[in-house]
Simulated scan of single mutants.
Amino acid sequence: MKIAIGSDHGGFPLKEMIKEHLQQKDIEIKDFGTDSEASCNYADFAEAVGEAVVSGTYDKGILICGTGIGISIAANKIPGIRCALVGDCFSAKATRQHNDTNVLALGARVIGSGLALEIVDAWLGTEFEGGRHQLRIDKITEIEKKYCR
């Protein structure tokens, strides 16, 4: 599995923890930035990670900002990205099972690092169920095509 990861300054420390956690599990990652806690724009990193996932170069993406809200909104502007802001393990599993999310967003100022690592593991370890859920994903894709010209 290949994971693209990115954060703004608010998510930088948590991103570094998640990177180390994934590396210990021998998961290939690419860090799309930022590289410090200096103020920066989350949209830049959402775009870079989203493009890497949509292109197929990376299987999934993880994005972190202070709340996870802004970075998830930015990522979801990219056609083909289904990014979910998650704050608990149940939702992490459900968003993979039912929504086939390809990008996970986390709020570094909202959840602790221990929970964040549990969420990442739950999300990465859960497969899409398909079936009736695929019909819903297809409808989302139709909406996306309608409004993204």
Rank of each mutant, 00 (worst) to 15 (best):
Lys2Asn: 13
Lys2Cys: 02
Lys2Thr: 11
Ile3Phe: 04
Ile3Glu: 04
Ala4Tyr: 02
Gly6Phe: 14
Ser7Tyr: 12
His9Thr: 07
Gly10Phe: 06
Pro13Gly: 07
Pro13Leu: 04
Leu14Cys: 01
Lys15Asn: 06
Lys15His: 07
Lys15Ile: 02
Glu16Pro: 05
Glu16Asp: 11
Glu16Ser: 12
Glu16Val: 08
Met17Tyr: 15
Ile18His: 01
His21Asp: 03
Gln23Cys: 06
Gln24Lys: 14
Lys25Gln: 03
Asp26Arg: 13
Asp26Gly: 04
Asp26Ser: 13
Asp26Thr: 12
Glu28Gly: 04
Ile29His: 10
Phe32Leu: 01
Gly33Asn: 15
Ser36Arg: 08
Glu37Ser: 10
Ser39Ala: 10
Asn41Gly: 06
Tyr42Leu: 04
Ala43Asp: 15
Asp44Met: 11
Phe45Pro: 00
Glu47Ile: 14
Val49Trp: 00
Gly50Lys: 12
Ala52Leu: 07
Ala52Phe: 09
Val53Lys: 09
Val53Gln: 09
Val54Thr: 14
Val54Asp: 12
Gly56Gln: 12
Gly56Met: 01
Gly56Lys: 09
Thr57Tyr: 09
Tyr58Ala: 14
Lys60Trp: 07
Lys60Tyr: 08
Gly61Cys: 05
Gly61Val: 07
Ile62Cys: 01
Leu63Gln: 08
Ile64Phe: 07
Cys65Val: 03
Gly66Asn: 01
Gly66Met: 00
Gly70Lys: 09
Ile71Asn: 05
Ile71Ala: 03
Ile71Val: 06
Ile73Tyr: 01
Ala74Tyr: 06
Asn76Thr: 11
Ile81Phe: 05
Arg82His: 03
Arg82Ala: 04
Asp88Pro: 00
Ser91Val: 12
Ala92Cys: 03
Ala92Thr: 03
Lys93Asn: 09
Lys93Gly: 05
Ala94Glu: 15
Thr95Ser: 12
Gln97Tyr: 10
Gln97Asn: 07
His98Met: 10
His98Glu: 07
His98Leu: 13
Asn102Gly: 05
Asn102Tyr: 06
Asn102Cys: 06
Ala105Val: 02
Ala105Pro: 13
Leu106Met: 02
Ala108Asp: 03
Arg109Phe: 02
Arg109Lys: 15
Val110Arg: 02
Ile111Gln: 01
Gly114Phe: 04
Gly114Ala: 07
Ala116Val: 09
Ala116Gln: 15
Glu118Lys: 06
Ile119Cys: 05
Val120His: 03
Asp121Met: 02
Ala122His: 02
Ala122Cys: 13
Leu124Cys: 05
Gly125Thr: 10
Thr126Tyr: 14
Phe128Ser: 11
Phe128Lys: 11
Glu129Val: 13
Gly130Glu: 11
Gly130Asp: 12
Gly131Ser: 14
Arg132Asp: 08
Gln134Ala: 10
Ile137Asp: 13
Lys139Val: 05
Ile140Cys: 13
Ile140Arg: 15
Ile140Glu: 14
Thr141Leu: 15
Glu142Ala: 14
Ile143Asp: 14
Ile143Val: 13
Ile143Asn: 12
Lys145Cys: 03
Lys145Ala: 09
Lys145Glu: 09
Lys145Tyr: 06
Lys146Asp: 01
Lys146Ser: 03
Cys148His: 14
Cys148Asn: 13
Cys148Leu: 11
Cys148Ala: 15
